[in-house]
């Protein structure tokens, strides 16, 4: 193999390595996962969030998908029909949860969405024992 041929192979390999991720992303860009609502507000820092959520997705092609989360309380769920495009869940959590949608066949990540838990962050107050404007 000549030096010229090696150069061409290297160039082709470099080109493929640069292009292939874009091809994969192009595939996942066409898929979208929408979470409603995306934020749950609690009244205090330590309070858990109880909320009904809905995941709704669109795909570039009809395929079966699975939904995974980073919370073990919500295990992997997979669709059994290509016509299914949403999932409703009851959530009880005090921490953020990230949902990931993957292709059931290829296990390729298609899209993700995150449920954020925030507190109302009210300033802490306590009883005041003196009337500020008392005349002594």
């Amino acid at each position: 193999m000549t030096l010229s041929q090696l150069s061409w192979l290297a160039l082709i390999g470099l080109s493929l390595s640069l292009v292939s991720p874009h091809l994969a992303q192009a595939n996942s860009r066409d898929a979208a996962l929408k979470l409603t609502p995306e934020i749950c507000i609690t009244s205090s820092d330590n309070q858990a969030c109880d909320i009904d959520i809905e995941l709704h997705w669109t795909l570039a092609k009809n395929e079966l998908v699975c939904i995974l989360s980073d919370n073990i309380a919500y295990p992997k769920w997979c669709s059994d029909s290509v016509l299914t495009n949403n999932l409703q869940m009851k959530i009880h959590t005090s921490t953020d949860i990230e949902f990931i949608m993957v292709s059931k066949d290829s296990n390729q990540t298609l899209a993700s969405a995150k449920l954020k838990i925030t507190s109302a962050a009210q300033p802490q107050v306590r009883r005041r024992y003196r009337n500020p404007w008392s005349l002594f």
């Binding site: 300033p123 802490q124 107050v125 306590r126 009883r127 005041r128 500020p132 404007w133």
Partner: peptide, 24 residues
């Protein structure tokens, strides 16, 4: 202690903050 809801608001004070005022 002292972190429960305080009502009425007029008899409460925000913790860890100076409350300053003057009546003229």
């Amino acid at each position: 202690m002292a972190k429960q809801t305080c009502v009425p608001e007029s008899q409460c004070i925000e913790m860890n903050n100076w409350d300053l005022g003057v009546a003229i």
